[in-house]
């Protein structure tokens, strides 16, 4: 066998193996998605959006409480987490850049991004739930915010650093003060990238269950008081899916379907913004 033949064969084997691995990976994803879609679509009905939780056996049970709870939990987490993340990222890129403090913050956020979310749930349990003596929507939102923060912070930091320094200098050279340079020129240049980071951050926390189990807990009925335990799609899904009642399991499928579609949409939007930015 010549040297060339050997290389061609090695190349074919490697290509076959990597293709196979990719097919297996994507195959599982499609399998999960198809089961989710088949069962989820089957379980969907208008009642789901209009009715609150009901005891097993009652045909009129819905997910309204979980949908609204989910939106409130993620909404409040975003209201505080997004500006905080963007401002912190701005500090790193525009003010701290290469200082020791910024490097430490960057490293810690990287660690936080890979921290198991249940640990963050336990942390919020210890600092919020235990002292106040009860599970609450606020505790859930705080846990989600903590998970969201490093993602938004690091994307903002990265995206702002991609803005060429000559653009900043040009604005300074026209007599712009630093805050105007950042808001009017740098943010504008990094707009699409920051938006992507925000969407991916929100999508990430929207699918979290573990940190909510310890914090916002659950409620089978509609509650809009953030200081009380609050239902979420993820925890409801967990409870219903593991219950022995068929109609609850069906609601669990519906919750899984709705949540997956929501997160998928956020992810696709995020990628689209990024593509648009690169296409320029």
């Amino acid at each position: 066998m010549t040297h060339t033949q050997k290389r061609v064969i090695t190349s074919s084997i490697v290509m076959a193996l990597s293709t196979l691995s990719a097919v297996i990976g994507i195959g599982f994803l499609l399998w999960i998605l198809s089961i989710l879609i088949i069962n989820g679509v089957d379980a969907l009905s208008t009642t789901i959006f209009l009715e609150e939780g009901a005891p097993p056996g009652n045909e009129n049970g819905g997910l309204k409480h979980a949908l609204i709870g989910q939106l409130m939990l993620v909404g409040y987490a975003s209201v505080f987490g997004v500006p905080l993340g963007i401002l912190a990222g701005t500090y790193l890129s525009e003010y701290g850049l290469k200082s020791k403090l910024s490097e430490i913050i960057r490293d810690i956020s990287d660690i936080m991004m890979s921290a198991p979310s249940i640990v963050i749930g336990a942390f919020v349990y210890a600092i919020v739930v235990a002292p106040s003596g009860q599970f609450s929507g606020w505790a859930g939102s705080i846990a989600l915010m903590i998970i969201m923060l490093p993602i938004i912070l690091r994307t903002t930091d990265d995206m702002l650093q991609l803005v060429p320094s000559t653009l900043r200098e040009a604005a300074f050279a026209l007599g712009a003060p630093k805050y105007k340079v950042i808001i009017q020129v740098v943010y504008r240049g990094a707009k699409a990238g920051i938006l992507t980071g925000v969407l991916l951050g929100v999508a990430r926390v929207a699918g979290e269950t573990a940190p909510l189990l310890f914090t916002s807990f659950n409620d089978n009925f509609l509650n809009t008081d953030m200081s009380q335990p609050m239902a979420s799609l993820t925890v409801t899904m967990y409870n219903y899916a593991t219950s022995p009642y068929e109609d609850w399991q069906k609601l669990g499928w519906a919750a899984a379907f709705i949540l997956s579609m929501f997160i998928l949409t956020l992810n696709v939007l995020g990628r689209l913004f990024l593509l648009k930015r690169k296409g320029k």
């Binding site: 060429p164 000559t166 653009l167 300074f172 240049g189």
Partner: peptide, 15 residues
């Protein structure tokens, strides 16, 4: 900097 302006090597059109 409003009295002494500057033009850079690469064009720096703002977005």
């Amino acid at each position: 900097r409003t009295q002494i302006g500057m033009i850079f090597q690469k064009p720096t059109a703002f977005p």
